[in-house]
């Protein structure tokens, strides 16, 4: 199947603040909406020379939504846009998550911090397809557990925080170990900061299960030509934006 890519000027039509530093921005982007598969991302104008990668958080009619935490130039630029402003969006890009062939295999979402931003669309579509879903969500503190309520619509959600301000105190890998001890036959889908991904991959290896892991790396182009966003796989560097961002946990060296 030929890959469909779009370079569009998309208009900001709605924005919402979700507590300190967290925002959702909705753009009118019908081309992206009708071609996105869950876990894919777009490159978006950032006020700098290069575009920035953003995973698509949800779609709604012709709107594509992006959930983000204001951290640097790109996210700050995005948070300051006014309704009606237009930005360049390039996508959809990369390889997203794959739903298991076995409809009875439950999906176990493992999210760390702002890595949660990729999962509402993944969980909603999984729910529509009839999969049983559970989310394990690790964050710094209670304030960082954004869109937990939304994910609860599709299944159980267990939270854990670094400071114990909500749920247990600890790391999401502890919850994952508990889950895998109970049932290894789950389709694991992971997204979060790189150190957390590496810990999760180690847990997967320990339990001899293969998960789908969505990586994040600095990238310049987003479509495979600059070779910046690489991760090590069997002695070779492969591209997060092209072979990924979603990769098999056993394909990545940690």
């Amino acid at each position: 199947m030929a890959v469909k890519r779009f370079l569009i000027k998309a208009k900001l039509i709605e924005k919402k603040e979700l507590g300190k530093d967290y925002h959702i921005s909705w753009f009118d982007a019908p081309e992206i909406v009708s071609n996105i598969s869950p876990g894919q991302f777009v490159m978006m104008e950032s006020g700098q020379y290069l575009l920035r990668p953003f995973s698509v958080y949800e779609t709604d009619g012709q709107k594509a939504g992006f959930l983000y935490k204001v951290i640097g130039w790109g996210t700050s630029f995005l948070s300051k846009l006014n309704i009606g402003d237009q930005v360049l969006i390039h996508g959809p890009l990369g390889k997203g998550f794959t739903y298991p062939e076995d409809k009875n295999k439950p999906i176990l979402i493992v999210a760390g911090g702002i890595g949660i931003a990729t999962f509402p669309i993944v969980a909603r579509i999984a729910h529509e397809k009839g999969y049983k879903i559970k989310t394990l969500f690790g964050a710094r503190s209670a304030n960082d557990l954004v869109c937990a309520e939304e994910l609860k619509k599709y299944g159980e959600l267990e939270a854990i925080t670094d400071d114990g301000s909500s749920g247990r105190k600890g790391f999401v890998t502890e919850l994952l170990k508990n889950e895998l001890t109970k049932n290894k036959n789950q389709e694991i889908m992971v997204c979060g900061p790189t150190p957390m991904l590496k810990s999760v991959i180690k847990v997967c290896n320990e339990f001899s299960v293969v998960g789908q892991v969505s990586f994040e790396e600095y990238m310049a182009c987003g479509y495979g030509v600059c070779m910046s966003c690489v991760v090590m796989s069997n002695g070779k560097y492969i591209r997060t934006c092209f072979e990924g961002p979603v990769m098999r946990s056993d394909a990545v060296s940690v």
Partner: peptide, 11 residues
């Protein structure tokens, strides 16, 4: 990695 770093402002 990291293999790239942006030079601001838009350079």
């Amino acid at each position: 990695t990291p293999r790239v770093v942006e030079v601001s402002p838009a350079c």
